[in-house]
């Protein structure tokens, strides 16, 4: 989806803070698809992704006053809300019913790897999929599943320093892939 520059970003933020409906509609039309793709990459279920997307847009609506344009772009802020909401959902009660005391175990490789072919080829994961396996796993665990580097180091039995270094290298490679 191509962004139609109907508003520049400061204008859009100002209008959203004034509870302007057409600005909000514009925001939804332009960004719902991009955010839903990231949400889907994390929750892995279409219907659940729709619920989270709705929740995210309500949060954007209610928390637009907390957005600080000095810290970054509006999309970055919305993307982080989406990621956090998605990870929270995955870890929520309904999920706990299925996976009591969800812990990072040896099955991370199956969780992050080849068993999720359908989500690998969609959205941002499609880009991550271009990374080497050892990098892809780290990005998947930390970005899409929200594990801390400490948790990852323990689970994978790799020193924390190595996790840190590899993850940073993975992110630089990601940057170079998406660089225009």
């Amino acid at each position: 989806m191509e962004v139609v520059n109907k508003y520049n970003e400061p204008e859009l933020v100002l209008l959203l803070r004034q509870r302007n409906m057409s600005a909000y509609t514009y925001l939804y039309e332009n960004y719902a698809g991009a955010l839903r793709s990231v949400i889907f990459n994390i929750v892995n279920e279409e219907e659940l992704a729709n619920d989270v997307l709705q929740e995210v847009f309500i949060k954007i609506w209610k928390q637009i006053d907390t957005y600080d344009n000095l810290k970054g772009r509006l999309f970055t802020w919305m993307l982080n809300i989406s990621r956090n909401a998605s990870i929270d959902t995955v870890r929520s009660k309904s999920f706990q019913n299925n996976r009591q005391n969800r812990e990072l175990t040896e099955d991370v490789y199956t969780a992050a790897g080849s068993s999720q072919i359908n989500t690998d080829v969609m959205g941002l994961r499609k880009v991550v999929h271009q990374l080497k396996e050892e990098y892809r796993v780290l990005v998947d665990l930390s970005y899409f599943q929200g594990y801390t580097q400490d948790e990852i180091a323990k689970a994978l039995g790799i020193p924390l320093g190595t996790v840190k270094t590899r993850l940073r290298t993975a992110l630089i490679q990601l940057r170079d892939i998406i660089k225009p």
Partner: peptide, 12 residues
């Protein structure tokens, strides 16, 4: 990142 996300959008 924004451009990539928009290019990989999944319209609801």
């Amino acid at each position: 990142l924004e451009k990539t996300a928009l290019a990989n959008a999944m319209p609801p």
